[in-house]
């Protein structure tokens, strides 16, 4: 994939998102460069998942806009695991093959080379031999591997991962981080919501610290300072039920 440095993969312009008029993400503006590997960090309720939901089009902004260089079709989104019904009778191969939706659509069959790609993706996440296993029979870590394989097949330029390493053992995390770094090396743009700051410092060059308000965005070492983290913790805990209407004007050119 060719890196096109001039146009950002994602531009957020004074974006405010929320539920029931209460902002969960408040006046966020920033540019995510093509090929960036960005961790989104912040306390619970800071608006991290909300931001990803808005980028996939599930939630419309209260104010502001965002622009995706690759368009809606160029986004692959990995929601948190608990949104999936694991009791449904479907096997691992079929579930992973759904990652080819944009190639095969609702009716197309799998050609031989596409079936090979599914097997290849399963092998890449270490699930060879699990093809006919029901998804309900997988462990949490194995299911997450399968979801990564599916995302691999989506072959999207912009990847959104919502807490991809939650409740997963260290070995699986290592394997999955290696896959994410592989995607980064291929030039894809990646935004991942994460809680493990150690992991962010080790692998993610850039970081967006959110606490409803944007607290910092830039190189990880400059953003994840104890001072800014303290600000983030304080901001996330204010919630006023009788909050007044926000009158803030968008600041031109501010990031």
């Amino acid at each position: 994939m060719k890196r096109d440095i001039d146009v950002p993969a994602l531009r957020l312009e004074n974006l405010t998102l929320g539920y029931d008029r209460h902002p969960a993400v408040h006046h966020l503006s920033c540019d995510i460069a093509s090929g960036a590997l960005v961790a989104i960090v912040g306390p619970n309720g800071a608006g991290k998942s909300t931001l990803l939901k808005a980028l996939t089009g599930e939630l419309s902004p209260l104010q502001g806009t965002f622009r995706l260089k690759a368009g809606r079709e160029g986004v692959a989104y990995l929601p948190q695991q608990n949104e999936m019904d694991r009791s449904f009778p479907v096997c691992v191969f079929d579930m992973v093959a759904m990652g080819l939706w944009r190639d095969i659509g609702a009716f197309g069959g799998l050609r031989r080379d596409q079936a090979e790609r599914v097997h290849g993706a399963l092998a890449a996440v270490g699930l060879s031999g699990f093809e006919s296993r029901q998804i309900g029979a997988l462990s949490g870590g194995q299911l997450q591997r399968a979801r990564f394989a599916r995302m691999m097949l989506q072959d999207a330029p912009l990847l959104l991962l919502d807490e991809p390493f939650n409740a997963i053992d260290t070995r699986t995390i290592e394997d999955l981080v290696a896959i994410v770094l592989g995607w980064h090396a291929e030039g894809r743009t990646i935004l991942a919501v994460l809680h493990d700051l150690e992991l962010v410092r080790r692998h993610f060059p850039e970081c967006l610290l959110l606490a409803r308000e944007p607290v910092g965005f830039g190189p990880t070492a400059e953003v994840l300072t104890s001072e800014r983290l303290a600000i983030a913790r304080r901001l996330a805990s204010d919630f006023d039920d009788a909050a007044r209407v926000c009158q803030r004007q968008p600041e031109r050119g501010a990031a």
Binding site: T56, Y77, P79, D85, R86, M98, W101, R150
Partner: peptide
């Protein structure tokens, strides 16, 4: 409807994100 319906049943968020 078979394929969309099956995905809608077990992983609606994924279906909404791809189509």
């Amino acid at each position: 409807l078979y394929r969309p319906l099956v995905i809608e049943c077990f992983d609606a968020a994924f279906l909404r994100s791809v189509s």
